[in-house]
Write a protein that binds this DNA or RNA. Structure first.
Lengths: 195, 195
DNA sequence: GTCTATACGAAGATAGAC
DNA sequence: GTCTATCTTCGTATAGAC
């Protein structure tokens, strides 16, 4: 009934735009690239995206933000924060290995890109993730007054570690970050799995 | 005597390239932009940079890396790690406020850019910073086995916090990160100023 | 909804005059 | 060492046919 998502060219194009943004950034992602990558018919660009590239990038960013937010929420729902951190890092690691360390976080690409609206969406996304993680930390026993700053630290360190991993073509920075974050969470009073 | 750095158009162009990379990334930084920003004579592009844009970006990245590395080293030499973190964040904060939150870290721009050689320089730069900070941590009393991962955490969290700050147009993420990093350093045994 | 053709400008790069 | 002119390619965007 209310299914108006269309799985056709439009969805394929936003998905491809996300993939290309992750690998080369917003500015270096062209329509021609998106068409080639998605296999979408050439004539449907401005039919589906009358706002041109701005609109495509904006919708791609929104799509990536929703997807990642959902994924993070599911991870947070299925365990404590420390376990969630490990899951997220495993996710990044798989992406890096599958793309020869070229693909990063699409939201970071949007944040550092040339499209103002996409940058704003990135900002909201980061805020959202921070709030979600903060709530999870409180549930784990962390002092609510502390949870917000700790959550910001988690997001920042994971995104930064991912960038170092891309630049060094190695997952080692992510491993270092996850270890330090675990220590920090435990010291802050978050429950930990006894494994 | 061995001063062969030239303060002319060439230096002005690399400096402008760095500034533009910080604001809009590597891909969106064109020769025309660099010329306009630096005021360099139009005819001197391929005279000074026969390798074209690749060479310009590579040299700009190298220049930015040297500058930042020197700056970090000086900061680390003048106090303990916790004090250094505050100084670095203050530096970022001034940059953000002076540029309406558009300018970020040039090395991150290089790491996520389209120029392979620049990305490699970024990777080496991050490694270098990590080693420098690690040495400082050891000097502060941190267990040498721990210093490397903690140093990686510092670099990752600061770079990530800077990106969140840019996206949210607020220095708040940096403040959160610096607070958490201080806790982590203290818990790791780094000496702290009694202030 | 999708096609081709095309306009228009920007960007990287080269040649040859001064 | 710097200039102008030019070439080519690419990218965005539009028009109009199918």
């Amino acid at each position: 009934m209310a299914r108006r998502q269309d799985g056709g060219p439009r969805a394929a194009m936003t998905a491809s735009a996300v993939a290309l943004m992750r690998e080369r950034g917003v500015a270096a992602t062209s329509f021609a690239d998106v068409l080639a990558h998605s296999g979408a018919p050439r004539g449907s660009i401005y039919h589906h995206f009358p706002g041109g590239k701005s609109q495509l990038i904006e919708e791609a960013t929104r799509s990536a933000a929703h997807q990642l937010t959902d994924r993070i929420q599911r991870i947070l729902d299925s365990g404590d924060t420390v376990t969630a951190i490990r899951s997220i890092v495993d996710l990044w690691r798989r992406v890096l290995e599958a793309t020869d360390y070229v693909a990063g976080c699409p939201i970071v690409a949007a944040a550092l890109g040339t499209e103002a609206s996409a940058r704003d969406i990135a900002g909201v996304s980061f805020t959202r993730w921070t709030e979600m993680i903060g709530a999870r930390l409180v549930g784990d026993g962390v002092d609510p007054a502390r949870a917000a700053t700790l959550a910001t630290m988690l997001v920042s360190a994971l995104e930064g570690g991912l960038i170092l991993a891309q630049a060094q073509r190695s997952a080692a920075p992510l491993d270092a970050v996850v270890g330090e974050l675990e220590l920090l969470c435990r010291a802050a009073g978050a429950v930990t799995p006894t494994e």
